[in-house]
Design a protein around this nucleic acid. Structure first.
Lengths: 127, 127
DNA sequence: CGTTGCGTTGACGTCGGCGGCAAGGTTTAG
DNA sequence: CTAAACCTTGCCGCCGACGTCAACGCAACG
């Protein structure tokens, strides 16, 4: 199939597909007129990319999964590198959640104090 | 004081300070030779900005706090707009944490399945 | 008087993941 | 035959918060 059909079937744009190819995440044959030609594997590859990116993976982090599919595996996460990437991503997410929780606590405390100050100020002005 | 001293005292760079000014978050008088001249308020303003940005505020979100300080208040969060910004930020953080937790769960499940598949595959090849 | 170290403005680079447009070639439907 | 709908490459734009020059002015010290 050509790039437009692949874009439709995998739920993205031709622009994104060309970008993935420029990043070495997608491969294509060329027909005699220079058009890109894809097989069914490409659909699975792009869907894998989209799924991971939607979850929050950076494009670069999808590479092991893509390689795994190109290596002929059933699933993109059938290879050790993919599982290792899962693990790193989980660690990243945990760290991120921790940071956000800390920030949340800081803001929450600051807000409580600000509100308390406003109330005492109000009481001071309006006895 | 001049820009270099302000940068040191507030723990940032002159470049950042000029950027803040370009964004209307910082104001300065000019000496006869064109140098920026700051007073003590500037130190507090910049520290407020840095504190908030470090927590995860976007620069634009620090504006109410800065305005509050310039309006002569003791604390940057003494004004209603600042408190409202606190609230919005808390909501944002909560939403972000929820997203991350969902992604975490998805990845965690996928990883468990991948690992399970690898084990059964291994058993099949190595009886 | 030269050097070093401040300061100034302006403009381009960075990172990620594309969007959008230009200027062409191809194919297909009517 | 022509118009629409594909395809190609290439390049600029975007977001945020600056970093990093360049090319200059000013000041202070020995």
């Amino acid at each position: 199939m050509r790039i437009g059909e692949l874009a439709q079937r995998s739920g993205t744009t031709t622009r994104a597909l060309r970008y993935y190819e420029s990043q070495g995440l997608l491969r294509s044959r060329r027909t005699s007129n220079g058009y890109r030609e894809y097989d069914e594997t490409a659909v699975r590859v792009v869907r894998e990319i989209r799924t991971l990116v939607t979850i929050g993976f950076r494009l670069e982090d999808t590479r092991p999964f893509v390689e795994c599919l190109f290596a002929g595996h059933e699933s993109g996460d059938a290879c050790p590198d993919s599982v290792a990437t899962y693990r790193r991503k989980l660690a990243e997410i945990d760290a991120c959640i921790d940071e956000l929780r800390a920030a949340r606590a800081t803001i929450s405390d600051a807000m409580a104090q600000a509100v308390a100050r406003r109330e005492t100020t109000c009481r001071a002005c309006c006895p």
